[in-house]
Simulated scan of single mutants.
Amino acid sequence: MADFLKTESFSVLGVSGGGAYAAAVSYRFPERTRLCVLVSSATPFHAGKPPKNMSKENRIAFFLSKHAPWILKKINSFQKKMIDRDPDKYKAALQKGGRHLPEWDNRQLTQEEVLDSTILHLKEAYRQGVEGALYETRLLTENWGFNLSNIQVPVHIWHGEEDTLSPVSEVKKMAGRFSTVTSRYIKDGGHFLTEEEKIWREILQTIVKEAAFK
């Protein structure tokens, strides 16, 4: 894509599971990547297993992706059907939040703007069916294929201290493996950091500022 756009250098930003892809691009193209930004990022699993301090609901999804993908496919297919046929009903379900989420994330899910954005993203993710989402869920349980310590570009991390979907303790371990890293751990922050306008602005401003000096 960068070649097609005739872009010689770029920065990459990965949110949640996208962190694995941002890290991979940074590892593969160190001469072209100016900055790697990881927000609420996933972390490598040890022996293919999610950390025990991850929310039970998330751990179950990863387990099913490997050992009973047909069950997870039914769940995702039901979700897709509801989003396509009755998005308001799905939004109402999201608004209820969940005990597995911190107060930060449940608060975000009460905002109409956040709900509309979530529906938009899910529709796009399921545009060609649910198989891609299932595949990527399983992919995150596998070895990323490179050593994080071999990433040569500057890495910036934003992560919520109360994130239950990607525990901050695992992110701190990951941060310790990068050669150049700047970490910002948000007090009381959950997984949905990019929905907080102030934080989102800080992330974008950092990219513009830091990448300009590389």
Rank of each mutant, 00 (worst) to 15 (best):
N106D: 04
R59K: 06
N147R: 15
S55V: 04
P30T: 08
V15S: 14
F78P: 06
V155Q: 04
T137A: 10
G190W: 01
N150Q: 15
G145R: 14
I119Q: 03
L134F: 00
L5T: 03
Y27I: 01
Y27L: 02
L101Y: 01
V114K: 01
G160K: 12
K66T: 15
T110A: 14
K91E: 07
G18H: 03
P154Y: 03
K198V: 15
K73A: 09
G132R: 05
E131P: 02
G98K: 00
R28K: 14
N58S: 09
G98S: 01
S41N: 12
M82S: 14
W144E: 06
T33F: 03
L134T: 00
L94E: 05
A92E: 13
K80A: 15
K214L: 11
K74S: 09
K172C: 14
R99H: 13
P50T: 11
F213H: 15
V181G: 04
L35P: 03
T118P: 00
L94W: 06
T206E: 13
A212G: 13
V171N: 04
V114P: 00
V208P: 08
E103T: 12
D3V: 05
E136S: 03
Q79N: 10
G190H: 05
E57I: 15
L165M: 08
E136W: 09
A175L: 00
K187F: 04
L148Q: 10
S169P: 00
K49W: 08
G19Q: 07
V130Y: 09
L165C: 03
D3L: 05
Y126D: 00
D3W: 06
E57R: 13
G14P: 07
F192I: 14
T182A: 15
G97A: 01
T110S: 13
F178I: 01
K89L: 05
I207P: 04
L13P: 00
Y90K: 07
K49A: 11
V153R: 04
I71C: 06
Q111N: 10
L64S: 02
T7W: 05
Y90R: 07
R59G: 08
G19H: 11
V153H: 02
A61F: 04
I157H: 09
Q128G: 12
P51H: 13
Y135A: 02
H46D: 08
A2Y: 09
